[in-house]
Amino acid sequence: MSVAALPSEGAGRAGLRLSLILLLAPALLWLGLLIILPHIQLLALSLKVKLGPRLYETGLTNYTEFFAESIYWSTLIRTAFISIAATALTLLIAFPVAYYIAKMIRGRRKNLLFVLALLPFWVSELIRTLGWIIILRETGLISLGLQWLGLIDQPVELLGNDAAILVGLVYTSMLFMVVPLVTVLDSLDDTLVEAGYDLGGNGFAVLREIIIPHAMPGIVAGCIIVFMLTLGNILTPALLGGKNSLWFTDQIFQKFIVRFNWEQGAAFGFLLLIVSSLVVWIGLKITRQSLASTMT
């Protein structure tokens, strides 16, 4: 009987392999066609140097130009620093919110608050950013409110500066920080916190020695997501920062669309990728986390 069963077993294994390939196919196609292939093409494009119409040679000129022109590299550094600041600010604001949702309340109110944190994301980012414009502009809510209170005697413009960009970026990123933090804090056993107090710890010691080490994978995951989203954001800095925004994605956009210099744009795209990977790598080293541990 077992002998008779062998051929069909072999056929079953082949069928299993086929279904595995079919199951993986969408993910592999997505990775290959939409991520790996375009990046290879961009890399090739970025190494092309335009000599004249339809005349190219291979070289690093597109990259050396970036370092030669201070406006380019200073914009990239500025973009990275504001993104790091926005990420840190988002973490500072989101942590208490997430702790409150995960630990301080129970049942229906917990779900309600979670949905409330989610609700702004049902509206598109464009509309949300326009909302901030309405609040921050010269004839906006804050300006009018301060005048009405008599604290200022003429309209004040709050748009077009780094603070406005930060406000918009933090607001846009909140959810992506709150969700991983709530998840990781939910899994923190309450008795660990109680034991922390019982053994003589005050609130600060419990936070530093027990809650934060436990939440570290969620903190790192949230920070990576928020940093990447912020660094790659183009809408919020453009709308809230105005002409002064000097955001690196905006320069990439300019190269591709306005100047039609795809070679230079591709090189800038790669530089952004390198900087963001570098910052994430340094962040993981500092917090002694691995990418794998933050994703589980």
Partner: peptide, 13 residues
Amino acid sequence: NMVFQHLALFPTM
């Protein structure tokens, strides 16, 4: 000081 039901040892230490 208290020994908890599930001990509550700090897993990160």
